[in-house]
Write a protein that binds this DNA or RNA. Structure first.
Lengths: 161, 161
DNA sequence: CATGAAAAAGCGGCCGC
DNA sequence: GCGGCCGCTTTTTCATG
């Protein structure tokens, strides 16, 4: 892992999004394009960025190797695909000495989409997705059986964007 | 990566409930594969599902036309790409008569990734991503100038998955 | 880093079952 | 609706300047 400089994070109005070392404006353009269309071809990227195909290719490969592009995924409408209920689950450990084990244990539980460690009262926030309210209850029970935590769920009524 | 469907008693999401979802097990398999690898080819999907290429093709096309597959996107590590700070922002309207306008007004603000309407005390939860702490402050100020709300931010320390 | 080639692969439409 | 075949197009890759 590259240890980066402790450059002051004062905002500079001329670089709105780009700041990480080694990422220039064209890399950002490529990332944005690939985020909007993960199946964009190298020639599309080249044309949009004003680069040649081979230059675009080497940039994409570097972005992939550096882990900035983690992969590619289909964007799925879960509401239409059989998992209509999403919720945030705030997770507070009952035993803080074992806090660090929690994400690993939660990782393999079906229905838990994401796990964030957060600053504040609860230690973790989960994003979960289930097929029905009763499945949500099942999932919460499973979480409680898996790790010693208390939970508080906030059902998502609608995803605007 | 785990997927969904803790198959249990009460709810069956995979039955052809005629009106809404004609999604069978093979469609689910295709969705899972495409979610894990949005660049999977039709022949890969066919081989993995036991279908022929043309059958897989027609299924994918139907899933796309029905909007179940919304599109394809690169999965980007924002922490490495120059937007290291993510946070949940709970949004509580000060004026509930104009609550419904809020998501639309927030939609175009740079840095707001997602907007969820939730059941519970705050009306909305935002997922935001910014380049620095001061940019987060800027973003919150902008939100307050844009819509009459109070906010409460929870910074994400780490995204486990 | 741009250009140009060759090679490979995916895609889409046809057929019959 | 599914499976297999074939031709076309596109993309990728690798050479070179």
């Amino acid at each position: 892992m590259s240890v980066q400089n402790n450059r002051d994070d004062k905002d500079r109005a001329d670089e709105p999004v780009t700041s990480s070392a080694g990422i220039d404006a064209k890399d950002v353009a490529i990332l944005n394009l690939l985020e909007a269309d993960g199946r964009a071809t190298l020639s599309q990227l080249a044309k949009a960025t004003g680069l040649s195909v081979s230059a675009a290719q080497s940039r994409v490969q570097k972005l992939e190797k550096r882990g900035i592009i983690r992969g590619y995924a289909a964007v799925i409408d879960y509401e239409r695909s059989g998992l209509p209920i999403s919720a945030f689950v705030s997770v507070t450990p009952l035993d803080y000495t074992r806090e660090s084990e929690i994400p690993n244990k939660l990782h393999d539980i079906d229905g838990i989409i994401s796990c964030y460690s957060v600053a504040g009262a609860p230690s973790f926030v989960l994003l979960v997705r289930v097929a029905s309210p009763s499945k949500l209850e099942e999932l919460l029970n499973l979480i409680h059986r898996t790790v010693p935590v208390s939970t508080e769920s906030t059902v998502i009524l609608k995803t605007y964007f």
